[in-house]
Design a binder for these strands. Structure first.
Length: 881
RNA sequence: GCGGGCGUGAUGGAAUUGGUAGACAUAGCGGACUUAAAAUCCGCAGCCUUAUGGCGUGGGGGUUCGAGUCCCCCCGCCCGCACCA
């Protein structure tokens, strides 16, 4: 149930009105009223105030999956607090909204319902827009767009062609990750544990000709920016994840000369980060899909069988851990650069073609994998790094490779050097010999963007047998998606590649005029979200963005979204922005100055006796137990988990808004838990927010009109009134700081405290202006969290215009300090009493007062005072013994 | 395995960064109002104890006048990466 005790929202509201007919807050009436008022005044249009500093706040835009869920409410409430706060602080704020609208779920829905992805998507957008509007967000809706609008993706196609022209994109044949369920290629970032990120199906490797963004060309700068201060406003763990993902390593690229009959290559290039251990080399290895392995597999059935075996090997985490190190000896040897020894060459199942050169030299003494392999095949194990506490003459490696520091042994010219010095020395020698060079290597690989799907941005290319891949001329853009009968989506695969779209696909080559074939792949939807923030800032018809307008807003000063995008979206957007910069669309290289990753919304799960999941509204929770609303059978209360449709532990934002109003939902989502942490949705929690709203309203109602009547603050106020003023200004100061630092839960705790302080305040005489100040502040400080309630209160108090337009209150420094403070007194570190002193009281006077305090004196009885520590304004500690 | 984070009442969480541990909220208990219940308002509330007092921030040790906060060891949980040479 939405209300814990089975009371209907309407009944609850009626009961309140009955109890107190004079003061009642009715969100159902107030919320639409103020939303209309904001819309009529066009309060949230960005770019109206050229004299103000600009502020761009953005939440990751939603995928139009059907309905808004409560996680969206939390996400957008955070951005909204920032937007409203910055607006009140005198900024010209850009806070836009749009739709990440291309993507596979639309095709899946089409497959299931027999509809068309386009209708499904735009229908969802209609619904979700209305839901978001009900939340009362301070959004500039005039800038709204969906990425599936041709007016948006036409520019994406232009960008693609421009990037192609500049060499940022290329087409190449390569092994790709093929998801057999989605029937599409996936980027490396979209393969998790060897499985498709959405389908969960084991990914197959397939050779295809597809398009790549050459993100590796920018690996160095993407990495450097993580550390050079450009991303100071990002959480450390997100930067760490990107750092790991880019995976920079320093090492040596070198080639071993090969000997053998009928070789496809006379040298074997390898990459290593441990050239210091070269003297410990006992074999060379290549990946099963390495060209050398393929060469021998073609003529040797034994090699072919081994390669096939490796390819059948699973790629899941568990498979990898279990997999035994295996190899196949090739009739080839490689010559060691320093010793001239001929090293055997193996195909080895643990070598990855995608990393480095797909080939290694193996030093079993100092690498566990190499050691396992060497033991299996009886190869030499030569220790060359001697641990600091070991004797070089007797040091041996048995079952465990030694990977720690030490000094070189059995290493010719390197002998005696510490390993960290031997490393550059070995590189230098190899370079002098002309066998290789020191290089930087990255784990990051190019971003494959081709997807064999319908519902995405078409890649504007025409393939001609004569002219190759030819860009679609600018005057023919956009390449739109051809209309397709909804029934086509019943068949898995890409409808763009079937008979029904022949007319769309078969077109003359723009260069030679002969019949050619349109590219049927569409772009990865992560392309759509890699530049939308720039388009929000500037939306000219004829180009992606107008540089001056884009740069007026960019970079996004505050970006807010889920941690699940720490790598994919955030890395792609950073990469894309660099491309935009190089094409002259913006000055900035980093799109997001400050990043905030918010936690998820969780909820308890419920299961009936048969193990079926139940929705929260199907369950009546009574204390520790729960019962089915329908039938009354006992229900098992399960763990608190991330809300998911499959476990039905979801709540509908509209139902919450109906019962308590959007303000209460927003407020609850930001109270209790720090915003970066997960928060558990509970009925009790949202009821607390609802109670707060009503108490604020009732408190303010008692001071109705007070803002109109009391402009001037009298000079000599009573102690009580001064105390209230101090509380008011401390609250202003505290809430302001809390919002600036994303401590919404603490800001809300302060509002609760302040509300308590405002209870029962008087409005006559001198108290009038003090009440006006306090209630005005209470209203304005609540406004970013509960904007509708705040407008209602503002109107009651007689404030000018809209609360939304009122400037943020300033805290008066002079009122932030007390004239008397309570100082705790400790005796030997334990609190024994307290004294009241002026904050600037002299140390000696404080000392004297502390020692004289009755409770303190009791604990000092019969003992000698050794030392008295006075921390001004904080504490006094008396050391006795 | 590597990297990062965390551990505070029944619960979510505060603690001015080394200075009164438990703000604020939720659940709970008591009271007022009510025929009654709900709602609302007021009050209580870390644990043990008769007040005095003692104990208390995962466990153990240390530094300090003083430790939730700093250092060392251990235990537990969460997240990311992972056959990356």
């Amino acid at each position: 149930m939405i209300l814990g005790c089975g009371t209907s929202p309407a009944a609850l509201f009626d009961a309140r009105v009955k109890a107190n007919p004079m003061a009642r807050y009715n969100p159902a009436a107030a919320e639409p009223k103020w939303q209309k008022a904001w819309e009529e005044k066009d309060c949230f249009a960005a770019g109206r105030h050229s004299e103000r500093p600009k502020y761009y706040v953005l939440e990751m835009f939603p995928y139009p999956s059907g309905k808004i869920h409560i996680g969206h409410v939390r996400n957008y409430a955070m951005g909204d607090v920032i937007a409203r706060f910055k607006r009140a602080r005198g900024f010209d704020v850009l806070h836009p909204m749009g739709w990440d609208a291309f993507g596979l779920p639309a095709e899946n829905a089409a497959m299931q319902t027999g509809g068309h992805p386009k209708d499904w998507t735009y229908g969802n957008i209609e619904v979700m827009r209305e839901q978001l509007k009900r939340m009362g967000l301070a959004i500039d809706w005039s800038r709204e767009f969906a990425t599936c609008d041709p007016e948006y993706y036409v520019h994406q196609q232009k960008l693609f062609l421009e990037f192609l022209d500049k060499g940022f994109v290329e087409r190449r044949e390569s092994l790709v990750n093929w998801d057999p369920v989605e029937m599409t290629v996936l980027a490396n970032e979209q393969v998790v544990d060897g499985k498709g990120w959405r389908s969960g199906a084991p990914v197959e490797r397939k050779s295809m000709s597809t398009w790549f963004f050459k993100i590796t060309d920018r690996a160095e700068d993407l990495l450097d920016a993580l550390d050079d201060g450009r991303l100071e406003g990002w959480p450390a763990h997100v930067k760490e994840m990107q750092r790991n993902w880019i995976g920079r390593s320093e090492g040596l690229m070198m080639s071993f000369p090969l000997s053998g009959d009928d070789l496809p290559q006379d040298k074997l290039p390898i990459y290593t980060t441990r050239p210091d251990t070269l003297y410990g080399a006992s074999f060379l290895g290549v990946a099963p899909d390495h060209p050398l392995a393929k060469h021998f597999a073609d003529k040797d059935p034994g090699a072919a069988a081994f390669v096939a075996e490796c390819q059948a090997q699973g790629t899941s985490e568990a498979d990898i851990e279990k997999a035994e190190k295996k190899g196949f000896r090739l009739p080839v040897t490689g010559r060691h650069p320093f010793t001239d020894e001929e090293l055997p060459v193996y195909i080895a199942n643990f070598i990855l073609m995608q990393y480095g050169t797909g080939a290694i030299f193996a030093c079993p003494a100092h690498d566990q994998r190499d050691l396992d392999f060497a033991r299996k095949y009886g190869l030499n194990v030569i220790p060359v790094v001697c641990p600091p506490d070991a004797d070089p003459s007797s040091f041996e490696v048995v079952d465990e490779a030694y990977v720690g520091p030490g000094s070189m042994m059995m290493s010719g010219f390197l002998d005696g050097l510490p390993a960290e010095e031997a490393l550059p020395a070995a590189i230098k020698r190899i370079e002098e010999m002309g066998w290789g060079e020191g290089t930087t290597n990255y784990r990051l690989r190019d971003w494959g963007l081709s997807r064999q799907r319908y519902w995405g941005c078409p890649i504007p290319i025409i393939h001609c047998d004569n002219c190759g891949a030819v860009p679609v001329p600018a005057d023919q853009l956009p390449v739109g998606l051809p209309p397709i009968d909804a029934s086509e989506f019943k068949t898995p695969g890409n409808p763009l590649d079937r008979d029904s779209t022949k007319d769309w696909r078969e077109v003359p080559c723009p260069e030679c005029g002969r019949m050619a074939r349109r590219e049927t792949d569409t772009m990865d939807t992560f392309v759509d979200s890699s530049w939308y923030f720039a388009r929000f800032a500037s939306q000219p018809k004829d180009k992606p963005v107008e540089k001056a307008d884009a740069d007026a807003w960019m970079p996004v000063q505050q970006y807010i979204g889920g941690i699940e995008h720490a790598i994919l979206h955030l890395l792609y957007a950073r990469y894309f922005t660099r491309n935009l910069q190089e094409c002259g669309y913006t000055e900035v290289s980093e799109p997001f100055t400050n990043l905030f990753t918010q936690g998820m919304v969780t909820h308890a799960t419920f299961q009936d006796a048969d193990g079926n999941w139940l929705f929260p509204e199907q369950v009546d929770v009574k204390g520790q137990r729960a019962f089915a609303v329908d039938g009354g059978a006992e229900v098992t209360i399960g763990s608190v988990e991330k809300m998911s449709k499959s476990k039905k532990n979801v709540v509908a934002p509209e139902a919450i808004a109906d019962a308590y109003g959007a303000d209460a939902a927003r407020f609850f989502m930001l109270s209790d838990s720090p915003p970066e942490r997960d928060v558990e949705w509970t009925d009790a929690g949202v009821e607390g927010a609802w109670r707060f709203a009503n108490r604020v309203y009732e408190t303010v109602a008692k001071g109705a009109g007070v803002l109109k009547a009391n402009a001037l603050m009298p000079d000599n106020l009573s102690d009580d009134l001064m105390a209230l003023r101090r509380t008011t200004h401390k609250t202003i100061d505290g809430v302001t700081g809390d919002i600036e630092h994303f401590r919404f839960n603490k800001a809300i705790a302060r509002l609760y405290e302040f509300l308590g302080a405002c209870k029962g305040l008087k409005t006559e005489g001198d108290a009038g202006p003090v009440a006006a100040e306090a209630l005005g502040a209470l209203t304005q400080l609540t406004a970013p969290f509960m904007p509708h309630l705040a407008e209602e209160c503002w109107e009651l108090l007689g404030g000018d215009g809209l609360c939304t337009d009122a400037p943020w209150p300033d805290a008066d420094e002079a009122l932030l300090t007390e004239d008397v403070i309570t100082l705790p007194i400790q005796v030997n570190g334990k609190r024994r009493g307290e004294i009241k002193v002026a904050p600037d009281a002299a140390e000696d006077a404080v000392k004297e007062a502390a020692l004289a305090q009755a409770d303190v004196a009791r604990f000092m009885e019969g003992k000698t005072v050794r030392k008295v520590i006075v921390v001004p304004g904080r504490i006094v500690n008396v050391v006795v013994g």
